[in-house]
Every structure is written in structure tokens, then in C-alpha cells.
């Protein structure tokens, strides 16, 4: 049979505007063989079930920056919630109904005096149970190496210029805590509802490499 035309074939973009990863229709790699084998052995030996694998993928797919955006928007519009978030961000997120598993979360607040940015120099720790899987650059050697020694230059490359009278605070997720930045609320959004505010909160603003943006 001739090579079928797939609608996600070479060079096409996904609905989120990103290129697809090499997928089902390319030659089976050694590591893909290992994934299939580990999965089947764990299922055959009763350690996990196929349904659990399926459900876990669905659970991760449902986690996205939109969840974090709702948390941030609520903090902007509800001072009591903001206080709870800064005390225990994990509990505050759970109280909003988000299933973040056992994750320990700390929220760090941007102010007129402080700009926070998050990195994991040892691996790729990220608040994945709230925001979903991290972007590729977050896991890159360049981001992990440079953010702790030249954070202002890194931020500048992301389009964020920090004034010299603002302290940059880099959070290295070295151990058991995960971090979310609570960006400063843009002046022009004062008075908007939490639902409207959530559209202003970008993924990058919750990592600290971006600022909230007017919805397109």
C-alpha cells in the first residue's frame, strides 16, 4: 500500500500551533520498543493496568496553564484567597477544586520591588500537576544553566526587561517544592471579573519569564 497521506504529515502544525513529534508512522526506535516492553511487562505482572495508563495520560492532558491562570485570577480579585495562596499554594489550589496530587506548591508574588523567576538547575521540576508538562526550553541545558547566573539577560531574551531598582529573585526547585509566580496585576485590568482576568495570565508569566498580556 502506498504511503498514506496523513493530515499531520511533514511540516504540518498541531491545533496548538506546534510541530508534531515524530510519531506512529516513522520507523520504530529502540527507546519506543523499550517503552512498549516496559508497559506490557508491568501490566502482565499486575503492577499496573492498561486502564491506569490511559487514565493517567488523560489526567495529564487535562492539566494546563489555564488551571494556573484561574488560580492567579482569583488571587487578583479575592484578597482573602491571595493570602491563602501565599501561605499554602497547594492547599489553596486544591480548595479551588484542582486535583494536583501530592504536589507541594509555593506561590511567589511579583511586586513593584521584586520579580520572581523559576528554574530547576538539577533536572526539570515544574508544577506539572497544576500547569501540565513543562515547555521544552524549561528543560534545556541553556535555561537551567544560565538563569541562576544571568537571570536579567535570560529574561531580556524572553522580552522582559527588569528595572535596576527591582530585585530579581531566582527560585531553584532543588528538592520537594514546586513554584508558581503570582504576577503583578496589570493596572488596566482593575475591576475585571476573575473569569475575564484569567485570559490575561500566560504560562510564561507563571514561570516568571513573561508578564500578563491582554487577550488576543
Amino acid at each position: 500500500m502506498p504511503h498514506d497521506h496523513h493530515d499531520h504529515d511533514h511540516g504540518a502544525l498541531s491545533p496548538s500551533g506546534h510541530p508534531y513529534r515524530k510519531d506512529d508512522d516513522i520507523v520504530l526506535s529502540y527507546w519506543q520498543m523499550m517503552e512498549i516492553s516496559v508497559r506490557e511487562l508491568l501490566i502482565e505482572k499486575g503492577h499496573i493496568t492498561a486502564a491506569q495508563v490511559h487514565n493517567q495520560i488523560n489526567t495529564m492532558d487535562a492539566r494546563s496553564p489555564a488551571n494556573g491562570a484561574k488560580v492567579v485570577a482569583r488571587a487578583w480579585s479575592d484578597p482573602e484567597f491571595k493570602s491563602a495562596l501565599l501561605t499554602d499554594a497547594g492547599q489553596a489550589s486544591r480548595d479551588m477544586g484542582f486535583d494536583i496530587g501530592p504536589m507541594h506548591l509555593i506561590a511567589v508574588e511579583n511586586t513593584i520591588l521584586v520579580h520572581n523567576v523559576v528554574v530547576c538547575t538539577l533536572c526539570s521540576c515544574y508544577p506539572r500537576n497544576l500547569l501540565g508538562l513543562p515547555p521544552d526550553w524549561y528543560k534545556s541545558r541553556a535555561y537551567r544553566s544560565r538563569t541562576v547566573i544571568e537571570p536579567r539577560k535570560v529574561l531580556s531574551e524572553f522580552g522582559v526587561e527588569i528595572a535596576q531598582d527591582v530585585q530579581v529573585r531566582v527560585h531553584d526547585s532543588t528538592a520537594d517544592m514546586r513554584y508558581i509566580v503570582l504576577p503583578a496585576q496589570p493596572k488596566e485590568t482593575m475591576g475585571l471579573s476573575a473569569d475575564e482576568l484569567a485570559y490575561w495570565v500566560t504560562r510564561d508569566s507563571m514561570i516568571g519569564v513573561g508578564l500578563p498580556q491582554a487577550p488576543k
Binding site: S14, S16, W137
Partner: peptide, 8 residues
């Protein structure tokens, strides 16, 4: 650059 995760 950003990619969407493959099933595997």
C-alpha cells in the same frame, strides 16, 4: 521551539 508530545 516547542513540540507537542507524541503518544509514546
Amino acid at each position: 521551539d516547542q513540540h507537542d508530545f507524541a503518544l509514546w
